[in-house]
């Protein structure tokens, strides 16, 4: 019975531990000298170094969506410019940010969990603490801050490149001209859409980096534990991101 109760309460315990860790990170935000250098380094790793893979994924998403939309638009009464009206908002509202976040859950989330997990099992985090360093401010805060700062930046890049991919595919594939594509994209453009996308990028940036930090920081069990933490970080990030996506859509749209 006690074991069953413990098992049932485990998610509550995990959530409490996660909230406490994030609260400790936020309360350390004044210790700028502790994390300034690490923040710049993490912004480079999470933002700049992720740009190539995010760009590649966005370009092909936009291009493939254009080709598939053109394939479905066979009716003679539907103007071709509708392709732009479909591809651009989809990139801005959903595919640009969710597709990017999935890529980053693997690239950024797994790396953070593996890095912190290895530090934990090799006593490096304890070594930092014993020196008198706030390990949460030094390790977790810069990673989460870099995530919430750089994900929106990457989102802007992903949307721009994704729509660009759509235009290239439309033009090169002979489906419609670049001008017609842009005209279609402008037709139903809602200024709130990119703003909503930025909100989602901010939230996903927080979820992926904070969940991965949590998994890595509390790793136990040697090399196997690091492997488990890495996998769990990527999977949990994706699952919570999807829930957040639905909640945000229901709340804002």
């Amino acid at each position: 019975m006690a074991a069953l109760t413990r098992r049932l309460l485990r998610p509550v315990h995990t959530l409490g531990k996660f909230v406490m860790l994030m609260a400790q990170a936020v309360s350390s935000i004044g210790e700028v000298s502790m994390y300034r250098k690490n923040l710049i380094s993490q912004m480079t790793k999470i933002g700049i170094e992720s740009l190539p893979i995010v760009s590649l994924a966005a370009f092909f998403s936009g291009a493939v969506m254009t080709v598939q939309t053109a394939y479905q638009m066979t009716g003679p009464f539907v103007p071709k410019s509708v392709i732009g009206s479909i591809v651009a908002p989809t990139m801005i509202l959903e595919l640009g940010v969710v597709g990017m976040a999935f890529v980053l859950a693997g690239r950024v989330g797994a790396r953070i969990a593996a890095e912190l997990g290895t530090m934990r099992v090799s006593d490096q985090i304890d070594a930092l603490e014993v020196m008198g360093l706030n390990s949460v401010a030094y390790l977790i805060l810069p990673r989460v801050l870099a995530g919430v700062i750089m994900f929106p930046v990457l989102y802007v890049a992903a949307c721009t490149i994704g729509v660009g991919g759509g235009i290239v595919a439309a033009d090169v594939g002979g489906y419609l001209s670049a001008e017609a594509f842009v005209q279609g994209a402008q037709m139903y453009f809602n200024p709130f859409d990119p703003f909503f996308g930025l909100i989602k990028a901010f939230v996903f940036g927080f979820l992926i980096t904070s969940i991965s930090c949590y998994k890595g920081y509390y790793t136990s069990g040697g090399a196997e534990g690091v492997g488990d933490a890495t996998t769990e970080a990527a999977v949990a990030s994706c699952v919570f991101m999807l829930f957040a996506d639905l909640l945000l859509a229901a709340a804002f749209l």
């Binding site: 290895t118 490096q124 304890d126 070594a127 020196m131 008198g132």
Partner: peptide, 19 residues
Amino acid sequence: LRTLRHQFGVLFQGGALFD
């Protein structure tokens, strides 16, 4: 506690050096 820890040095089993 962090201030007090400046009085301590610890040699961990594997060294715990930063890779």
